[in-house]
Design a binder for these strands. Structure first.
Lengths: 196, 196
DNA sequence: TGCCGATGTTAACGCTCGTTAACAACTCTA
DNA sequence: TAGAGTTGTTAACGAGCGTTAACATCGGCA
């Protein structure tokens, strides 16, 4: 048999796959999923287009695996941080986590935010469930911090907060990482505390 | 001669053009510029694809005119509102304006935020200049409100604030317009005031 | 040593894209 | 009423897309 480009079934961590996923993240973030061709993707890692099919079953499989991986990483660590019994500390821990992720992986955050609709249907549902679960971790922490806050209003506030935090890739101003992270933390915390 | 699908040269306000621009905004926002074909665009207004060339010189001209129009509207009213001698009132007026625009035109805000790179070069510069000028209106108001705030930090804060406000189309939760507008205003104002 | 799986290549496929050409219908107006 | 301009249609173009097929190379191992 040739290769088996199935899902991420935890074989030995194939470096070529990782390389392709990294390059694809940059390209998808910059030009959008439909603005990137298989040829572009191959060229970005020094290959021709069709070589990609040795590692993935198709273009949409690259996107699907990328989004699935992001969603799982965000949620897993989010659950861990939200578990702090002190809701104020839990919120700060969530903020630190999300900000660090966004600053370290601006392309991934952008793709995660924009391209879910281009994932084929079996996996799109799974990714959406993970994304929603991540949001609910934040919602739960906020409502522990501020009981009586309606769920709908809290969810809207969390989405707005993500909009603020995920703006990093678009601004990326002259500020260094530490200054930018501190600014985002300060603003997001203040924004969420203002919700009553 | 046939028609002259040049830029927006202020003839009588052609309703077909406006109809196409409106449909294009929805489609570009939902699927991205490259995810929408000329055929899709025509079909959305009850025409065939090639009919579009009676009104625009090409697909990119639709996007360019759309972004130019948004940028001009945002800036014109932004300048007006930022002129309030009281910087606190000016900031509230800017917030009201941007929030109202985002709530009333979620598709436009999304396209404005994402698709500038797909505008061909003569007009991209103009749009970018307008966008920057709009940001600078906000920056100036914030620095009147808080003298001594470094320009770079202020600009980053404004971009983060836009990320918060422009999240509306993505969340669009069960909240009604008034509740959503109030929430965004509260959060954005608190986020900006926290910047020191 | 000879084979086999893994990982590349080039060539070719069917399809869709943006765009243009050629033509038809309708509305004004001279 | 003839003619011109406007706005639509269908047909056709060349290019590029995602994908598959056929073949080459190379390393590890019976």
């Amino acid at each position: 048999m040739t290769s088996q480009p199935a899902a991420a079934l935890e074989g030995p961590p194939n470096p070529r796959r990782a390389e392709i996923l990294g390059a694809a993240a940059e390209l998808f973030a910059r030009r959008g999923y439909h603005g990137v061709s298989i040829g572009d993707l191959g060229r970005a890692v020094g290959l021709t287009g069709p070589a990609l099919y040795r590692h993935f079953s198709g273009k949409d499989a690259v996107l699907a695996e990328m989004l699935l991986d992001i969603s799982e990483r965000l949620l897993a660590e989010g659950v861990r941080r939200a578990a702090d019994p002190d809701p104020g500390r839990a919120l700060d821990a969530l903020l630190h986590w999300h900000i660090a992720f966004a600053l370290d992986n601006p392309a991934l955050i952008t793709v995660h935010e924009r391209e879910l609709d281009n994932v084929p249907e079996p996996q799109r549902h799974r990714i959406r469930r993970l994304q929603r679960a991540y949001v609910e971790e934040w919602v739960a922490v906020l409502r522990r911090l501020n009981p009586g806050l309606p769920a709908g209003r809290t969810r809207a506030a969390v989405h707005a907060c993500f909009g603020l935090l995920n703006s990093t890739p678009r601004s990326a101003a002259g500020l260094d990482r530490e200054a930018m992270g501190g600014l985002l933390h300060t603003m997001a915390r203040a924004a969420l505390e203002a919700v009553r």
